[in-house]
Design a protein around this nucleic acid. Structure first.
Lengths: 212, 212
DNA sequence: AACGTATTTGAATCTCGCTTCAACTAGCAC
DNA sequence: GTGCTAGTTGAAGCGAGATTCAAATACGTT
Protein backbone atom coordinates (compact mmCIF):
# COMPACT_ATOMS: atom_id res chain seq x y z
CA UNK A 1 0.00 0.00 0.00
CA UNK A 2 2.29 2.72 1.28
CA UNK A 3 5.46 1.40 -0.24
CA UNK A 4 7.88 3.72 -1.96
CA UNK A 5 9.34 1.45 -4.58
CA UNK A 6 7.50 -1.79 -3.90
CA UNK A 7 10.93 -3.33 -4.40
CA UNK A 8 12.48 -3.63 -0.94
CA UNK A 9 9.87 -4.68 1.54
CA UNK A 10 10.36 -2.50 4.53
CA UNK A 11 10.84 -4.17 7.81
CA UNK A 12 8.42 -3.70 10.64
CA UNK A 13 8.19 -4.46 14.30
CA UNK A 14 6.59 -7.71 15.28
CA UNK A 15 3.47 -5.98 16.53
CA UNK A 16 3.04 -3.81 13.45
CA UNK A 17 3.59 -6.69 11.10
CA UNK A 18 1.07 -8.82 12.87
CA UNK A 19 -1.52 -6.11 12.43
CA UNK A 20 -0.69 -5.98 8.74
CA UNK A 21 -1.04 -9.71 8.48
CA UNK A 22 -4.40 -9.73 10.20
CA UNK A 23 -5.57 -7.18 7.70
CA UNK A 24 -4.13 -9.13 4.80
CA UNK A 25 -5.76 -12.32 6.03
CA UNK A 26 -9.04 -10.46 6.25
CA UNK A 27 -8.85 -9.42 2.61
CA UNK A 28 -7.64 -12.79 1.41
CA UNK A 29 -10.43 -14.63 3.19
CA UNK A 30 -13.07 -12.44 1.65
CA UNK A 31 -11.69 -13.18 -1.79
CA UNK A 32 -11.11 -16.89 -1.39
CA UNK A 33 -13.23 -18.03 1.50
CA UNK A 34 -12.47 -18.47 5.17
CA UNK A 35 -11.48 -22.07 4.66
CA UNK A 36 -10.33 -22.06 1.06
CA UNK A 37 -7.73 -19.36 1.59
CA UNK A 38 -4.06 -20.21 0.95
CA UNK A 39 -0.91 -19.07 2.66
CA UNK A 40 0.45 -17.54 -0.52
CA UNK A 41 -2.66 -15.48 -1.03
CA UNK A 42 -2.29 -13.98 2.40
CA UNK A 43 1.41 -13.35 1.82
CA UNK A 44 0.65 -11.61 -1.45
CA UNK A 45 -1.99 -9.41 0.16
CA UNK A 46 0.56 -8.41 2.76
CA UNK A 47 3.28 -7.84 0.18
CA UNK A 48 5.50 -10.50 1.73
CA UNK A 49 6.63 -14.02 0.99
CA UNK A 50 5.08 -17.05 2.56
CA UNK A 51 8.15 -17.56 4.72
CA UNK A 52 7.70 -14.20 6.37
CA UNK A 53 4.10 -14.99 7.19
CA UNK A 54 5.13 -18.26 8.80
CA UNK A 55 7.78 -16.45 10.77
CA UNK A 56 5.04 -14.49 12.53
CA UNK A 57 2.41 -17.21 12.57
CA UNK A 58 3.94 -20.70 12.52
CA UNK A 59 0.39 -22.06 12.58
CA UNK A 60 -1.74 -20.36 10.00
CA UNK A 61 -4.93 -21.21 11.85
CA UNK A 62 -3.92 -18.85 14.63
CA UNK A 63 -3.72 -16.01 12.16
CA UNK A 64 -7.12 -16.79 10.72
CA UNK A 65 -8.69 -16.90 14.15
CA UNK A 66 -7.10 -13.62 15.10
CA UNK A 67 -8.30 -12.06 11.88
CA UNK A 68 -11.86 -13.16 12.55
CA UNK A 69 -11.63 -12.01 16.12
CA UNK A 70 -10.33 -8.61 15.08
CA UNK A 71 -13.02 -8.32 12.41
CA UNK A 72 -15.74 -8.90 14.96
CA UNK A 73 -14.22 -6.51 17.40
CA UNK A 74 -14.06 -3.82 14.75
CA UNK A 75 -17.62 -4.49 13.67
CA UNK A 76 -18.87 -4.19 17.23
CA UNK A 77 -16.79 -1.16 18.13
CA UNK A 78 -17.89 0.68 15.02
CA UNK A 79 -21.51 0.15 15.99
CA UNK A 80 -20.95 1.37 19.50
CA UNK A 81 -19.25 4.46 18.21
CA UNK A 82 -22.09 5.26 15.83
CA UNK A 83 -24.74 5.09 18.50
CA UNK A 84 -22.62 6.54 21.26
CA UNK A 85 -23.84 10.11 21.13
CA UNK A 86 -27.53 9.43 20.64
CA UNK A 87 -29.78 9.87 23.64
CA UNK A 88 -33.27 9.54 22.19
CA UNK A 89 -34.11 5.83 22.49
CA UNK A 90 -36.18 5.71 19.30
CA UNK A 91 -33.48 7.27 17.20
CA UNK A 92 -30.87 5.14 18.90
CA UNK A 93 -32.76 1.99 18.04
CA UNK A 94 -33.07 2.99 14.41
CA UNK A 95 -29.42 3.85 14.04
CA UNK A 96 -28.42 0.66 15.80
CA UNK A 97 -30.43 -1.43 13.38
CA UNK A 98 -28.87 0.31 10.41
CA UNK A 99 -25.38 -0.12 11.81
CA UNK A 100 -25.84 -3.87 12.07
CA UNK A 101 -26.45 -4.28 8.38
CA UNK A 102 -23.84 -4.23 5.61
CA UNK A 103 -23.53 -1.04 3.55
CA UNK A 104 -24.07 -3.17 0.50
CA UNK A 105 -23.09 -6.53 -0.99
CA UNK A 106 -19.40 -5.65 -0.81
CA UNK A 107 -19.22 -4.57 2.82
CA UNK A 108 -16.06 -6.34 3.90
CA UNK A 109 -16.81 -6.43 7.59
CA UNK A 110 -20.07 -8.28 7.24
CA UNK A 111 -18.77 -10.44 4.41
CA UNK A 112 -16.19 -11.87 6.77
CA UNK A 113 -18.81 -12.61 9.40
CA UNK A 114 -20.90 -14.46 6.84
CA UNK A 115 -17.93 -16.62 5.97
CA UNK A 116 -18.02 -18.06 9.44
CA UNK A 117 -21.60 -19.28 9.55
CA UNK A 118 -20.92 -22.58 7.88
CA UNK A 119 -17.55 -23.17 9.45
CA UNK A 120 -19.05 -22.75 12.91
CA UNK A 121 -20.81 -26.09 12.50
CA UNK A 122 -17.42 -27.78 12.25
CA UNK A 123 -15.12 -25.56 14.25
CA UNK A 124 -15.69 -24.92 17.92
CA UNK A 125 -13.55 -21.81 18.01
CA UNK A 126 -15.49 -20.15 15.23
CA UNK A 127 -18.75 -21.23 16.80
CA UNK A 128 -17.74 -19.62 20.07
CA UNK A 129 -16.70 -16.40 18.37
CA UNK A 130 -20.02 -16.10 16.57
CA UNK A 131 -22.06 -17.02 19.60
CA UNK A 132 -20.25 -14.49 21.74
CA UNK A 133 -20.82 -11.76 19.19
CA UNK A 134 -24.50 -12.64 19.02
CA UNK A 135 -24.89 -12.43 22.77
CA UNK A 136 -23.09 -9.13 22.97
CA UNK A 137 -25.36 -7.65 20.38
CA UNK A 138 -28.38 -8.94 22.25
CA UNK A 139 -27.20 -7.19 25.39
CA UNK A 140 -26.67 -4.01 23.45
CA UNK A 141 -30.24 -4.06 22.18
CA UNK A 142 -31.60 -4.99 25.58
CA UNK A 143 -30.02 -1.92 27.10
CA UNK A 144 -31.59 0.31 24.48
CA UNK A 145 -34.99 -1.32 24.88
CA UNK A 146 -35.02 -1.12 28.64
CA UNK A 147 -33.83 2.46 28.66
CA UNK A 148 -36.62 3.34 26.25
CA UNK A 149 -39.15 1.53 28.41
CA UNK A 150 -37.94 3.30 31.52
CA UNK A 151 -38.39 6.64 29.77
CA UNK A 152 -41.88 5.67 28.73
CA UNK A 153 -40.99 5.89 25.04
CA UNK A 154 -41.29 2.17 24.45
CA UNK A 155 -44.06 -0.12 25.60
CA UNK A 156 -42.49 -3.52 25.26
CA UNK A 157 -44.86 -6.18 23.98
CA UNK A 158 -42.48 -8.93 25.09
CA UNK A 159 -39.58 -9.20 27.47
CA UNK A 160 -36.53 -7.31 26.33
CA UNK A 161 -34.41 -10.40 25.78
CA UNK A 162 -36.89 -11.86 23.34
CA UNK A 163 -37.13 -8.66 21.35
CA UNK A 164 -33.39 -8.15 21.40
CA UNK A 165 -32.71 -11.68 20.19
CA UNK A 166 -35.18 -11.33 17.38
CA UNK A 167 -33.72 -8.00 16.32
CA UNK A 168 -30.22 -9.42 16.15
CA UNK A 169 -31.51 -12.48 14.32
CA UNK A 170 -33.25 -10.33 11.73
CA UNK A 171 -30.13 -8.27 11.23
CA UNK A 172 -28.03 -11.36 10.71
CA UNK A 173 -30.40 -12.92 8.24
CA UNK A 174 -30.85 -9.79 6.15
CA UNK A 175 -27.11 -9.35 6.19
CA UNK A 176 -26.86 -12.68 4.40
CA UNK A 177 -29.55 -11.64 1.92
CA UNK A 178 -27.77 -8.41 1.11
CA UNK A 179 -24.42 -10.13 0.69
CA UNK A 180 -26.09 -12.61 -1.67
CA UNK A 181 -27.41 -9.65 -3.69
CA UNK A 182 -31.11 -10.25 -3.24
CA UNK A 183 -32.79 -8.23 -5.99
CA UNK A 184 -35.36 -6.56 -3.80
CA UNK A 185 -33.77 -6.49 -0.36
CA UNK A 186 -31.14 -3.78 -0.09
CA UNK A 187 -29.93 -2.17 3.15
CA UNK A 188 -32.79 0.35 3.17
CA UNK A 189 -35.40 -2.30 2.61
CA UNK A 190 -33.87 -4.46 5.33
CA UNK A 191 -34.01 -1.60 7.81
CA UNK A 192 -37.64 -1.10 6.97
CA UNK A 193 -38.44 -4.79 7.47
CA UNK A 194 -36.70 -4.92 10.82
CA UNK A 195 -38.34 -1.68 11.91
CA UNK A 196 -41.70 -3.21 11.09
CA UNK A 197 -41.03 -5.77 13.77
CA UNK A 198 -39.53 -3.23 16.14
CA UNK A 199 -42.66 -1.09 15.91
CA UNK A 200 -44.87 -3.95 16.96
CA UNK A 201 -42.53 -4.88 19.77
CA UNK A 202 -41.99 -1.40 21.19
CA UNK A 203 -45.26 0.30 20.39
CA UNK A 204 -43.27 3.23 19.05
CA UNK A 205 -43.79 4.55 15.49
CA UNK A 206 -40.01 4.74 14.93
CA UNK A 207 -40.00 7.17 12.05
CA UNK A 208 -36.62 7.05 10.38
CA UNK A 209 -37.45 9.79 7.84
CA UNK A 210 -35.63 12.77 9.33
CA UNK A 211 -32.88 10.95 11.14
CA UNK A 212 -29.44 10.13 9.88
CA UNK B 1 -22.67 -48.26 3.37
CA UNK B 2 -24.71 -51.17 2.01
CA UNK B 3 -21.90 -53.12 0.46
CA UNK B 4 -21.61 -56.85 1.05
CA UNK B 5 -17.87 -57.28 1.08
CA UNK B 6 -16.69 -53.74 0.46
CA UNK B 7 -14.19 -55.45 -1.82
CA UNK B 8 -15.61 -55.29 -5.36
CA UNK B 9 -17.35 -52.02 -5.98
CA UNK B 10 -20.53 -52.84 -7.76
CA UNK B 11 -21.24 -51.05 -10.97
CA UNK B 12 -24.20 -48.82 -11.36
CA UNK B 13 -26.03 -47.02 -14.10
CA UNK B 14 -25.02 -43.46 -14.80
CA UNK B 15 -28.15 -42.08 -13.20
CA UNK B 16 -27.87 -44.17 -10.04
CA UNK B 17 -24.24 -43.38 -9.59
CA UNK B 18 -24.83 -39.69 -9.97
CA UNK B 19 -27.36 -39.82 -7.17
CA UNK B 20 -24.83 -41.62 -5.01
CA UNK B 21 -22.24 -39.01 -5.79
CA UNK B 22 -24.55 -36.16 -4.94
CA UNK B 23 -25.16 -37.80 -1.61
CA UNK B 24 -21.47 -38.40 -1.06
CA UNK B 25 -20.67 -34.81 -1.95
CA UNK B 26 -23.29 -33.69 0.55
CA UNK B 27 -21.65 -35.64 3.35
CA UNK B 28 -18.14 -34.63 2.38
CA UNK B 29 -19.03 -30.94 2.26
CA UNK B 30 -20.53 -31.05 5.72
CA UNK B 31 -17.35 -32.58 7.07
CA UNK B 32 -14.85 -30.42 5.24
CA UNK B 33 -16.68 -27.32 4.12
CA UNK B 34 -18.40 -26.39 0.88
CA UNK B 35 -15.24 -24.89 -0.49
CA UNK B 36 -12.56 -26.79 1.35
CA UNK B 37 -13.78 -30.20 0.21
CA UNK B 38 -11.44 -32.37 -1.88
CA UNK B 39 -12.14 -34.76 -4.70
CA UNK B 40 -10.66 -37.67 -2.81
CA UNK B 41 -12.90 -37.05 0.16
CA UNK B 42 -15.96 -37.24 -2.04
CA UNK B 43 -14.66 -40.37 -3.73
CA UNK B 44 -14.07 -41.99 -0.39
CA UNK B 45 -17.56 -41.12 0.83
CA UNK B 46 -18.94 -42.73 -2.31
CA UNK B 47 -16.72 -45.79 -1.98
CA UNK B 48 -15.06 -45.10 -5.33
CA UNK B 49 -11.76 -43.82 -6.62
CA UNK B 50 -11.24 -40.25 -7.72
CA UNK B 51 -11.10 -41.38 -11.36
CA UNK B 52 -14.62 -42.75 -11.18
CA UNK B 53 -15.92 -39.50 -9.77
CA UNK B 54 -14.31 -37.56 -12.58
CA UNK B 55 -15.81 -39.96 -15.08
CA UNK B 56 -19.26 -38.81 -14.01
CA UNK B 57 -18.39 -35.21 -13.25
CA UNK B 58 -15.41 -33.99 -15.27
CA UNK B 59 -15.83 -30.64 -13.54
CA UNK B 60 -16.17 -31.07 -9.82
CA UNK B 61 -17.93 -27.75 -9.45
CA UNK B 62 -20.91 -29.13 -11.31
CA UNK B 63 -21.23 -31.90 -8.77
CA UNK B 64 -21.06 -29.48 -5.87
CA UNK B 65 -23.70 -27.27 -7.37
CA UNK B 66 -25.97 -30.23 -8.01
CA UNK B 67 -25.46 -31.41 -4.46
CA UNK B 68 -26.43 -28.03 -3.07
CA UNK B 69 -29.39 -27.84 -5.40
CA UNK B 70 -30.58 -31.28 -4.40
CA UNK B 71 -30.11 -30.45 -0.74
CA UNK B 72 -32.30 -27.39 -1.04
CA UNK B 73 -34.92 -29.25 -2.97
CA UNK B 74 -35.05 -31.94 -0.32
CA UNK B 75 -35.24 -29.39 2.46
CA UNK B 76 -38.13 -27.61 0.79
CA UNK B 77 -40.00 -30.76 -0.21
CA UNK B 78 -39.74 -32.17 3.28
CA UNK B 79 -41.32 -29.03 4.68
CA UNK B 80 -44.14 -29.11 2.20
CA UNK B 81 -44.82 -32.71 3.05
CA UNK B 82 -44.93 -32.03 6.77
CA UNK B 83 -47.48 -29.26 6.45
CA UNK B 84 -49.42 -30.81 3.60
CA UNK B 85 -52.24 -32.34 5.59
CA UNK B 86 -52.83 -29.51 8.03
CA UNK B 87 -55.83 -27.30 7.45
CA UNK B 88 -55.99 -25.15 10.56
CA UNK B 89 -53.93 -22.06 9.72
CA UNK B 90 -52.62 -21.54 13.24
CA UNK B 91 -51.40 -25.09 13.54
CA UNK B 92 -50.01 -24.94 10.03
CA UNK B 93 -48.01 -21.86 10.85
CA UNK B 94 -46.54 -23.44 13.96
CA UNK B 95 -45.56 -26.63 12.19
CA UNK B 96 -44.08 -24.67 9.32
CA UNK B 97 -41.87 -22.69 11.64
CA UNK B 98 -40.65 -25.82 13.33
CA UNK B 99 -39.94 -27.51 10.01
CA UNK B 100 -37.70 -24.65 8.93
CA UNK B 101 -35.33 -25.14 11.82
CA UNK B 102 -32.68 -27.83 12.18
CA UNK B 103 -33.47 -30.78 14.46
CA UNK B 104 -30.28 -29.97 16.30
CA UNK B 105 -26.68 -28.90 15.71
CA UNK B 106 -26.04 -31.94 13.53
CA UNK B 107 -28.98 -31.64 11.16
CA UNK B 108 -27.26 -32.32 7.87
CA UNK B 109 -29.79 -30.58 5.66
CA UNK B 110 -29.51 -27.24 7.39
CA UNK B 111 -25.77 -27.59 7.91
CA UNK B 112 -25.32 -27.70 4.17
CA UNK B 113 -27.42 -24.59 3.68
CA UNK B 114 -25.33 -22.74 6.25
CA UNK B 115 -22.20 -23.64 4.33
CA UNK B 116 -23.42 -21.55 1.45
CA UNK B 117 -23.98 -18.25 3.24
CA UNK B 118 -20.40 -17.09 2.98
CA UNK B 119 -19.73 -18.53 -0.45
CA UNK B 120 -22.74 -16.69 -1.85
CA UNK B 121 -20.85 -13.43 -1.50
CA UNK B 122 -18.27 -14.71 -3.96
CA UNK B 123 -20.20 -17.13 -6.13
CA UNK B 124 -23.14 -16.01 -8.21
CA UNK B 125 -24.56 -19.49 -8.64
CA UNK B 126 -24.67 -20.10 -4.91
CA UNK B 127 -26.12 -16.65 -4.34
CA UNK B 128 -28.89 -17.38 -6.79
CA UNK B 129 -29.66 -20.73 -5.22
CA UNK B 130 -29.96 -19.21 -1.76
CA UNK B 131 -31.99 -16.25 -2.93
CA UNK B 132 -34.40 -18.50 -4.80
CA UNK B 133 -34.88 -20.69 -1.75
CA UNK B 134 -35.53 -17.65 0.39
CA UNK B 135 -38.17 -16.34 -1.98
CA UNK B 136 -39.90 -19.68 -2.22
CA UNK B 137 -40.13 -19.90 1.53
CA UNK B 138 -41.53 -16.39 1.69
CA UNK B 139 -44.26 -17.36 -0.77
CA UNK B 140 -45.04 -20.41 1.30
CA UNK B 141 -45.52 -18.33 4.43
CA UNK B 142 -47.52 -15.72 2.56
CA UNK B 143 -50.01 -18.33 1.45
CA UNK B 144 -50.47 -19.55 5.00
CA UNK B 145 -50.85 -16.02 6.34
CA UNK B 146 -53.36 -14.94 3.74
CA UNK B 147 -55.39 -18.08 4.09
CA UNK B 148 -55.53 -17.52 7.82
CA UNK B 149 -56.54 -13.91 7.33
CA UNK B 150 -59.28 -14.92 4.90
CA UNK B 151 -60.62 -17.35 7.48
CA UNK B 152 -60.60 -14.63 10.10
CA UNK B 153 -58.13 -16.57 12.25
CA UNK B 154 -55.32 -14.11 11.69
CA UNK B 155 -55.47 -10.34 11.90
CA UNK B 156 -52.34 -9.30 10.09
CA UNK B 157 -50.58 -6.34 11.66
CA UNK B 158 -48.50 -5.82 8.52
CA UNK B 159 -48.75 -6.87 4.91
CA UNK B 160 -48.23 -10.57 4.39
CA UNK B 161 -44.96 -10.18 2.48
CA UNK B 162 -43.35 -8.28 5.33
CA UNK B 163 -44.39 -10.84 7.90
CA UNK B 164 -43.38 -13.73 5.67
CA UNK B 165 -39.94 -12.28 5.00
CA UNK B 166 -39.34 -11.68 8.67
CA UNK B 167 -40.43 -15.19 9.56
CA UNK B 168 -38.06 -16.73 7.03
CA UNK B 169 -35.29 -14.41 8.18
CA UNK B 170 -35.78 -15.44 11.80
CA UNK B 171 -35.74 -19.09 10.84
CA UNK B 172 -32.51 -18.66 8.93
CA UNK B 173 -30.77 -16.79 11.69
CA UNK B 174 -31.77 -19.18 14.44
CA UNK B 175 -30.71 -22.03 12.20
CA UNK B 176 -27.22 -20.58 12.28
CA UNK B 177 -27.38 -20.18 16.06
CA UNK B 178 -28.41 -23.79 16.55
CA UNK B 179 -25.74 -25.09 14.20
CA UNK B 180 -23.19 -23.06 16.16
CA UNK B 181 -24.45 -24.72 19.35
CA UNK B 182 -25.68 -21.66 21.18
CA UNK B 183 -25.96 -22.69 24.81
CA UNK B 184 -29.44 -21.34 25.40
CA UNK B 185 -31.04 -21.41 21.96
CA UNK B 186 -32.09 -24.90 20.96
CA UNK B 187 -34.80 -25.75 18.42
CA UNK B 188 -37.59 -25.46 20.97
CA UNK B 189 -36.39 -22.09 22.17
CA UNK B 190 -36.04 -20.88 18.60
CA UNK B 191 -39.60 -21.88 17.81
CA UNK B 192 -40.75 -19.97 20.85
CA UNK B 193 -38.84 -16.85 19.83
CA UNK B 194 -40.20 -16.91 16.31
CA UNK B 195 -43.70 -17.56 17.58
CA UNK B 196 -43.38 -14.51 19.79
CA UNK B 197 -43.05 -12.45 16.66
CA UNK B 198 -45.74 -14.40 14.81
CA UNK B 199 -48.21 -13.73 17.61
CA UNK B 200 -47.72 -10.00 17.35
CA UNK B 201 -47.98 -10.11 13.59
CA UNK B 202 -51.05 -12.33 13.34
CA UNK B 203 -52.93 -11.44 16.49
CA UNK B 204 -53.36 -15.16 17.12
CA UNK B 205 -52.23 -16.79 20.41
CA UNK B 206 -50.62 -19.68 18.47
CA UNK B 207 -50.50 -22.20 21.26
CA UNK B 208 -48.10 -24.96 20.29
CA UNK B 209 -48.73 -27.10 23.39
CA UNK B 210 -51.15 -29.69 22.05
CA UNK B 211 -50.11 -29.66 18.40
CA UNK B 212 -47.33 -31.46 16.60
C1' DA C 1 30.37 3.86 11.43
C1' DA C 2 30.25 -0.67 12.96
C1' DC C 3 27.70 -4.24 15.45
C1' DG C 4 24.13 -7.30 16.46
C1' DT C 5 19.83 -8.98 15.86
C1' DA C 6 15.19 -9.38 14.20
C1' DT C 7 13.08 -9.75 9.95
C1' DT C 8 12.73 -11.26 5.30
C1' DT C 9 14.00 -13.67 1.25
C1' DG C 10 14.63 -17.41 -2.10
C1' DA C 11 15.60 -21.78 -3.15
C1' DA C 12 15.28 -26.66 -2.09
C1' DT C 13 12.38 -30.19 -0.53
C1' DC C 14 8.30 -32.49 0.50
C1' DT C 15 3.62 -33.56 0.34
C1' DC C 16 -0.66 -34.04 -1.56
C1' DG C 17 -4.37 -33.52 -4.70
C1' DC C 18 -5.64 -33.32 -9.46
C1' DT C 19 -5.50 -35.22 -14.03
C1' DT C 20 -4.88 -38.60 -17.49
C1' DC C 21 -5.21 -42.92 -19.44
C1' DA C 22 -4.42 -47.73 -20.64
C1' DA C 23 -6.06 -51.86 -18.80
C1' DC C 24 -9.59 -54.38 -16.55
C1' DT C 25 -14.34 -56.11 -15.71
C1' DA C 26 -19.24 -56.37 -14.75
C1' DG C 27 -23.39 -56.64 -16.74
C1' DC C 28 -26.34 -56.25 -20.85
C1' DA C 29 -27.84 -57.55 -25.73
C1' DC C 30 -28.08 -60.93 -28.79
C1' DG D 1 -22.09 -68.21 -24.36
C1' DT D 2 -20.02 -64.42 -26.88
C1' DG D 3 -19.23 -59.97 -27.68
C1' DC D 4 -19.88 -55.09 -26.61
C1' DT D 5 -20.00 -51.20 -23.96
C1' DA D 6 -20.01 -48.51 -20.00
C1' DG D 7 -18.13 -48.05 -15.53
C1' DT D 8 -14.16 -48.52 -12.72
C1' DT D 9 -9.45 -49.07 -11.26
C1' DG D 10 -4.65 -48.07 -10.40
C1' DA D 11 -0.52 -46.18 -11.60
C1' DA D 12 2.11 -42.49 -13.56
C1' DG D 13 2.92 -37.65 -14.23
C1' DC D 14 2.11 -33.00 -13.07
C1' DG D 15 1.58 -28.93 -10.45
C1' DA D 16 0.65 -26.25 -6.51
C1' DG D 17 1.08 -25.22 -1.93
C1' DA D 18 3.39 -26.03 2.62
C1' DT D 19 7.57 -26.21 5.03
C1' DT D 20 12.34 -25.57 6.08
C1' DC D 21 16.42 -23.07 6.41
C1' DA D 22 20.78 -20.87 5.26
C1' DA D 23 21.88 -16.52 3.45
C1' DA D 24 20.93 -11.74 2.99
C1' DT D 25 19.59 -7.34 4.81
C1' DA D 26 17.30 -3.51 7.13
C1' DC D 27 17.24 -1.19 11.33
C1' DG D 28 18.15 0.13 16.12
C1' DT D 29 21.98 0.56 19.28
C1' DT D 30 26.17 1.96 20.74
Amino acid sequence: MTQRESRPTQRKSKADRRLDLIDAAHRAMIQHGAEGVHLNQIAEEAGLTSGAVLYHYPDLRDLLIEAHHAGMERFYERRMKKIGGISDPAEKLIVTIRSGLPDGPDDTGVRLLCELGGAAGRNRVYATLLTTLFDRQVSMYQTILETGAAHGVFTLAQDSETIARNLVALEDAYGYRIVARHHSIDPDKAVELILDYARLATGNPLRPADRR
